[in-house]
Design a protein around this nucleic acid. Structure first.
Lengths: 90, 90
DNA sequence: CAGTTATTTAGATATTTGTCTAATTATTTA
DNA sequence: TAAATAATTAGACAAATATCTAAATAACTG
């Protein structure tokens, strides 16, 4: 849903997390290490990203590995392009 | 700035307003008439859209005409495409 | 000018959000 | 099995947000 997606993207920390995951898959702890914020706070951000389908979490032993999922952004892309009457999707 | 843009888009009423303005320019009152919400509330939403550069307001006598401005969305489009470009499924 | 219309601004309030600390769950290892 | 490590859940709280009513501003009209 569009609501959950925009909500997830409406935070600089969460967008930074997506930036990180674009480079490589990371565990929750590795992500938290890159921010001046507690692990529970990061965990909460990851939850919102997960709710939006922007990331996926897979348990690897005692770790949880987070992966970006860009396919959800196609929905946003479609929404976006429909406003730009003069240009068509490539 | 990305922050103001995402903030403006993170509300269903504001996205609906953009949808309306995609069809035609409208005055503040005409916009408010299409929602089950008071005029001051709509006025506030219009202000946030204006702050993000998504709409422009021009005074026409005692009316204020609102126009959509899609060029701001190019920034969002660029942000979006940069995720899709080089993140490959593993 | 006085009254009406269009819109915004101000102030109040309930809800949502982002963050923290403390506690809990799950897994690994000595 | 006990201790250590990884991560989440729970609960609290301040700040931000969406909404309302009332008041203010600006422009038109008789």
């Amino acid at each position: 849903m569009m609501n959950v997606l925009f909500k997830a993207l409406n935070d600089p920390t969460r967008r930074q997390i997506l930036d990180l995951l674009r480079e490589a898959d990371l565990t929750a702890g590795e992500i938290a290490d890159r921010f001046a914020m507690t692990k529970p706070s990061i965990s909460h951000h990851l939850d919102l990203l997960k709710q939006a389908g922007l990331v996926e979490a897979t348990k690897k032993g005692q770790f949880i590995l987070y992966t970006i999922n860009t396919t959800v952004l196609d929905e946003l892309l479609a929404w976006l392009l429909h406003f730009r009457q003069d240009s068509q999707p490539k």
